[in-house]
Design a protein around this nucleic acid. Structure first.
Lengths: 100, 100
DNA sequence: ATATTATTTAGCTTGTTAGCTAAATAGAAA
DNA sequence: TTTCTATTTAGCTAACAAGCTAAATAATAT
């Protein structure tokens, strides 16, 4: 997975944007209203997320509707787990056999 | 989960350190030898990872042995998945019922 | 005590990031 | 066409991050 994704996730504002989009598509303005920052600031955050391919924007008349790229996010997290060899499977049936 | 962890993961050098420690504990020097950077640079990376509680260092005589905090890493990734409502469970048995 | 080795801390430099305001673009409404 | 609204782009500043070298610390070996 690209460093771009990790970098994109490193900012709390961007993480919250992703979480908001997890629930529904939102326009740039709607998203911006959730934050205490100026619009251009949010606009740049959108751009970072777009460059990481985590969201995509579609022009709809006057405004831009942003949508989460769910599959990209999922694959990113999966790749992360593989990179660190973290196994989050459910069953804990068998213990590692040790000398006892 | 704290922003510290996300920030710590945002740097490729630090990610590689974690991966190396995934296999075995290593001294600061051993780790440094894997990278084309000066020791003090690596030292600061160790510190960032320590502050995120992802690794821990133990003085052993002359040197410092770094060890991965596996459980912290695992919980971090789990929290990440929950934060983004990503479900990586195995079964894909049932499809979402759609109008057809 | 002195020197050697391993590591960190301090201080500097350069590049990046995240905030801001002002200006540009683009579509919708009048 | 003029105005209004939504959003982005441009350009600025301050803070942060990551690299470096030189110096400090701490343990080991001579």
């Amino acid at each position: 997975m690209a460093t771009k994704v990790y970098k994109a996730l490193a900012d709390p504002t961007r993480r919250k944007i992703l979480q908001l989009l997890r629930d529904r598509d939102m326009t740039a303005g709607e998203l911006s209203d959730q934050f205490p920052f100026a619009r251009p600031t949010l606009s740049r955050h959108f751009n970072v997320l777009k460059n990481a391919d985590l969201i995509q924007g579609t022009k709809l008349g006057n405004q831009i509707v942003y949508r989460l790229n769910v599959s990209v996010l999922e694959e990113a997290l999966l790749a992360m787990m593989q990179a660190f060899k973290v196994d989050l499977s459910v069953s804990e049936a068998d213990e590692e056999p040790g000398q006892s």
